[in-house]
Design a protein around this nucleic acid. Structure first.
Length: 431
RNA sequence: GGAGGAGUCGCAUAGUGGCCAUUGCAACGGCUUGGAAAGCCGUGACCCGAAAGGGUCUCGUGGGUUCGAGUCCCACCUCCUCCGCCA
């Protein structure tokens, strides 16, 4: 959500942002409705002031005895009349708000000026490529073949039990998941030791109340059909722990000296993949349920760009620890998504597809989410500010397991374990 | 699932229909100072206004009763206690 005052004063910027982000919102309509709303509110508040003035006459005198109250009827009639007028105006105000609020929620965050302008993902900018793509002296298998041969992944029985887009991870694969978790937690701890960049480990709830699920601002962007909804309990399943993590501080005033607040959360994520029929239908690259380690930061406004770079640097550190070849992408305006002002993806080399596939994403959402969720801090001068929120993938575990399997496969059909994981899982090869 | 109790500005706390919601502590800012302490002043949201200023809202949330609601009524949310069930 954007600040209404900002929209009033910078309507051109807002329109430009809508255009850049390929979002159609009638900004002029917003301005018009806002004007109507303020006019009506002023009228209602003036009437209310009059009503309050009369009510106060009924108060007992400072010296007077007893419970006070009115004796003369005419003034009561007058107050009743004003009250009636206000009542009559209420439906009109409600009508305006019902039209205005959805439009406000549809407005995207303003992208930073240095974000590449583009229509869609084809205009994203490759910032750098790191690591060597593996060259196999044999016919390489895809991860599904490896998964079947080594009894690591069973999507057939998952289909029987849960349907398509699910999988059983078996044998060494779950152990590798735990190793990845431990690697991330260790790096989070080491960062603290080295530079005081503390990340607090969290396991959040993965079920959210509606207003909290909406708070992170994705429902208007894609389609709320993407999230699983438990009608009986009016709750949504989290598509990413970003949702419960950002909502964690909703309606709070944070202490400025506690900022930045950094978290690294582990959770299962649930996605309907409603808009991706026919895409990645086989295997476990795109599934309804997967585990993910996600970093989330609440920062002061002036620090968010720096914190965003920190998130990206940690993601790259993790990738280098695993020794996987990857590229860093600067996401263009048309592909940013509604809440982000700036976003970098990491794509990891997937040999079987002979291309890079997205495994990480880190966004600076500035105050867009904080405004919806009312997350604030008071600065030195006593001024209230909305915090900036940032998020970044540490590991999306299913996908990174795929990347390890394919990139580390050997001629004899076995899979080497990246060195950084060996001490956590206790084996060096899967065969 | 059943039965009770509670939610007031960061913490604590007063307030059971009538001035502008008490008081203490803490934090932050300002005044003061050579610097500090103490002291004093201030600390939410929104609207109108160039400003000075004025107004509306805010006692978990939303409705209702009333000229007037922290206070009365209804619904919901959250937390606590006990019973039942349970990893």
């Amino acid at each position: 959500m954007l600040d209404v005052n900002f929209i009033r004063e910078n309507s051109n910027k807002v329109k430009e942002a809508c255009e850049k982000k390929q979002t159609k919102v009638d900004v002029d309509k917003i301005l018009e409705l806002d004007k109507q709303k303020r006019k009506l509110m002023t009228e209602m508040e003036n009437l209310k002031a009059e009503q309050n003035k009369i009510s106060r006459l009924g108060s007992p005198k400072p010296t007077g005895e007893g419970g006070g109250g009115f004796k003369n009827e005419p003034i009561i009639e007058q107050a009743k009349e004003i009250k009636g007028k206000i009542k009559e105006m209420e439906p009109e105000l409600e009508r305006i708000e019902n039209e205005l609020n959805p439009l406000l929620l549809q407005l995207p965050n303003i992208p930073f000026d240095d974000v590449p302008v583009g229509k869609n993902e084809s205009e994203n900018v490759i910032m750098r490529q790191v690591g060597k793509k593996p060259k196999f002296s044999f016919t390489a298998k895809d991860y599904m073949q490896l998964g079947k041969d080594l009894d690591l992944i069973d999507t057939e029985r998952a289909g029987k039990v849960a349907g398509s887009r699910f999988g059983y991870l078996k044998n060494e694969l779950p152990l590798l998941e735990f190793a990845l978790i431990n690697l991330v937690m260790d790096i989070a701890r080491n960062l603290l030791a080295q530079s005081g960049e503390k990340f607090v480990p969290v396991i959040p709830p993965v079920m959210l109340k509606e207003e909290m699920a909406r708070g992170t601002g994705y429902f208007e962007a894609t389609d709320e059909k993407e999230a699983y909804y438990l009608a009986e309990d009016k709750m949504f399943l989290a598509g990413t722990s970003e949702q419960p993590m950002v909502a964690m501080h909703a309606n709070e005033v944070l202490n400025e000296k506690d900022l930045p607040k950094r978290y690294v959360a582990f959770s299962t994520c649930f996605r309907r993949e409603a808009g991706s029929y026919g895409k990645d239908t086989k295997g476990i690259l795109r599934v309804h349920q997967f585990d993910k380690l996600e970093m989330v930061i609440f920062s002061k406004q002036e620090d968010s760009k720096k914190e965003h770079q920190l998130l990206l640097s940690i993601e790259e550190k993790l990738m280098k620890a695993l020794g996987l070849p990857y590229q860093v992408i600067n996401i263009c305006t048309g592909d940013l998504g509604r809440p982000a002002a700036c976003k970098y993806d990491i794509e990891t080399w997937l040999p079987s597809e002979n291309k890079y596939r997205e495994t990480h994403s880190t966004s600076n959402c500035t105050d867009f989410q904080a405004r919806r969720l009312n997350i604030r801090y008071k600065d030195k001068s006593g001024k209230m500010n909305f915090a900036h929120t940032l998020n970044g993938t540490a590991f999306a575990i299913g996908r990174i397991l795929i990347m390890i399997m394919e990139n580390y496969q050997q001629k004899d059909g076995s899979i080497r374990v990246p060195k950084a994981l060996q001490k956590y899982c206790g084996f060096k090869v899967i065969k």
